[in-house]
Write a protein that binds this DNA or RNA. Structure first.
Lengths: 188, 188
DNA sequence: TTGACCCCTTACTGATTAGTAAGTAAGGTG
DNA sequence: CACCTTACTTACTAATCAGTAAGGGGTCAA
């Protein structure tokens, strides 16, 4: 693919890591610049304000989720759920990262309004997708659960998000335990 | 009870609100002082460093949890679980507050080491208690679930924590939905 | 009445923050 | 060759941050 170093992309990668590890208010332009070996003003060149950077990050997450969902369209409900869970286990493997949506929701009142709005969009999108997967899977007897598909989607999202955070205090096994239990509760 | 204004306690209350709404890195001594109508240095008088304040906050949460657990000792497993859930719904009622443990875990890498340690202690304590409640309840046929009690406790904690955060993006119904589903999955 | 203690203020420090402005080196294009 | 654009740098501002030092007013006890 692109051979050039592409500082813009490096900034987004670094900022994404820092967001998931430290929260949006837990890193500065200086921190990013230091990692990349440039000056803070270089980061401002690509993302004039921190809100711009935050919005670009969320847009990037949404694109990735969107692309992933499109690619998974042909798969069975079970495979789609499995893939979804894998996204989160990868976060954990990459050094106890939390889920971006979880972090942004945790410090929701302390992020710019535009970021709140885009965070809402992102979460709602994932929730709709997951509701569909669960209901589709139940129709086809891939899953077994009582109650509303939307409620179950909320639980699955909340559990993965919470377990990823819980892994900080209870250890990484905590996430595997949650996944194990989650599958049991879905009759998988 | 105590008639005197007790600034120390007012600081803790205000800081607790801000922690649960904005995260530990989302408020400053200046913010607290402003709310209380004092100067930032007055906050430093009671809590020399922000780490001191953070540790006092966690200690306060642990005391409250501890006292509550002691009070609930006589109750049935079902009642204890119900009470535990009520703690979280109250957070939600008090203006979309998140769970303190959840917030601290979300920005885990961006809080002082001592606070990380105390956060771990707090979460482990709650986890142990909840494991006990769930296993006790299953023995007495108050709950029905498959798998390890510890795993189930992880799921319950993660779900409540995640759902409280999810309420920011998906609305407050999200929490009730999660609780509804959680109870279904426990055969309640 | 003296003094000591508590709780706060004023006034500061130095670091870090986001953000801006001006300049510059390198690379392509007419 | 002159001329832009891109991608930075240096150098700055103003605000905010955590934290400190010194002092002052009120209360209480000897």
């Amino acid at each position: 693919m692109s051979a050039k170093p592409d500082t813009r992309e490096e900034i987004l990668k670094t900022a994404s890591n820092m967001l998931q590890l430290r929260g949006f208010n837990g890193f500065s332009y200086g921190h990013i610049a230091e990692v990349l070996g440039v000056k803070a003003a270089a980061v401002h060149y690509h993302f004039p304000s921190k809100t711009d950077l935050g919005l670009a990050l969320i847009a990037r997450y949404r694109e990735r989720y969107g692309r992933w969902m499109k690619d998974a369209q042909g798969l069975s409900a079970r495979e789609r759920l499995e893939g979804y869970i894998t996204i989160y286990s990868r976060f954990l493997q990459e050094g106890a990262k939390a889920c971006p949506a979880g972090v942004l929701q945790a410090e929701y009142q302390a992020i710019p309004e535009e970021m709140q709005r885009e965070t809402r969009r992102m979460v709602q999108e994932i929730h709709r997708w997951l509701t569909d997967v669960l209901e589709d899977g139940r129709r086809k007897s891939e899953f077994a659960f009582n109650g509303d598909g939307s409620d179950k989607a909320t639980v699955v999202m909340a559990t993965l998000q919470g377990a990823l955070q819980g892994a900080r205090a209870l250890g990484k096994e905590c996430f595997q335990a949650a996944v194990r239990q989650l599958k049991k509760d879905l009759g998988v």
